[in-house]
Nucleic acid binder design. Sequence first.
RNA 1: GGCCCUAUCGUCUAACGGUUAGGACAUCGCCUUUUCAAGGCGGUAAUCAGAGUUCGAUUCUCUGUAGGGUCACCA
Length: 481
Amino acid sequence: MEEKAINNEVVTRFAPSPTGFMHVGSVRTALYAWLFARKNKGTFILRIEDTDKEREVEGSIEHIQKSLKWFGLDWDEGPGVGGPHAPYIQSERLDLYKKYAEILIKKGLAYADPYTEEEIEKFRKEAEADKKPFLYREYRREDAPAWDGTRPLRFKVGELKRTAWNDIVWGELSAGPEALDDFILIKSDGYPTYNFAHVVDDIEMNVTHVVRGQEFISSTPKFLSLYEAFDIKPPFFVTTPPILGADGNKKLSKRDGAKDILEYEIEGYLPDAMLNYLAFLGFNPGGEKEIFTREELIDVFDLSKIQHKGAQWSDEKLNWMNKEHIKLLPSDEVKKYVLQYLPKEMQDDVIVPKIIPLIVERISKWGDIKEMLTKGELDFFYKAPEYEKNKLIFKNTLPEKTTENLSQAIEALKELKEDNFTVDNIKVALMKIADGLESRGELLHPIRFALSGLDKSPDPFTIAYIVGKNETLSRLQKAIE
RNA sequence: GGCCCUAUCGUCUAACGGUUAGGACAUCGCCUUUUCAAGGCGGUAAUCAGAGUUCGAUUCUCUGUAGGGUCACCA
């Protein structure tokens, strides 16, 4: 056996199985492992655990990598980048597991399973009927045949004792001997089980901190018995709480509507905002600050401040956080994103820079721009709107009065030079008239409506400024007519 | 059923055994405003229950209750 590297370097890993897309739960686990590695200037490994060939979904490995890349969770070792422990795909490491299996066999700690699947199923049913947990070791036979690879290879658990260990998140944990059993190391198809393969790989890859979901707590005694069998000091365990669905307390799963993480990219969320939100779903550094950049997150991240209980997903808070992150973005970045979502014919060099602040104010994610488009909330910046005349009138104002007001407005705006046609100047000019009226709405509503044709829109001054003096005058003139 | 874990506003969470139990999202109200959005100010809202330890318990212990995880030739 290779001597474990003697240094203090932190090594974490993310080890998904390629059974489909990644959802927020797996990404958060990856994020915690990544944050911890980055904080400690350690190594973050991506390892693909494809030992269940039946469940494997075509294209998953690429999809996982794409997802991690979108988040900016870069891996130092793994598919695509290689590393000292390559390959990083378990199905390509079968010889290694076999080697470790031979060690156990030689030590008398592994044996071929003499039963058929049907027989075991019967045992399981019996246990269930007796309301007892199923423990294979109670049926262990001493006449096991030699392992030829066609039968499952089982671990022979030693002393049945209480297992106690320390988890960085949960503290002291322990479990009774019921948690120990003769579990399968290598399946009859030649592939190792998760229980076996991940331990071997974590040993081989010198993983120091195993970050994973709490569904693995109950099998940790099994893992520990393996480390003991190999006489290797186990890594630190870092167990993360589950992410719960928004409408209940069930763990978020693909079945319950957990989305492919790349859907969030399509919907126009910022990776840094997702990172921030995900990190804070189950972790809190203690202060009152909530918006963190990627670097700040690395700085404050602390494994011991991860929560113990599941946290409910909230689109609302994610949206809010995304908006906050949009505010943090430099303007050229914002422009780049907006252009991505704006149809070609709207990508006008003069108008776009002016309407960007208006857009940003009204959305929480880039995908919302599409909604604005379908609602026609941007069209009026480009062309004169169509509308029903009567909507032009403010409340009970007389049509004649409205016409008179608009005429006054036109006169006032004509006074403004092209160069002085700014939001502030327009506002001053129009307010002077509006303040002389019974209600400002008598003037401002018709103007806003004439310019936008919408019940809800930005203020008239801003629209006038954006469409320009000539267009403004022409729309107002049209309104009078 | 066995084993393991968890429990603070609706939600995410903060609080060396001593706080008017804090913040954020959501919600409600007000201000600003012709409308929308954004912004500002403010309100409603929580320690699961019961014992015990202690001068004092959200915090420590026990019991109960509720919820979650796990008991695969899945990870």
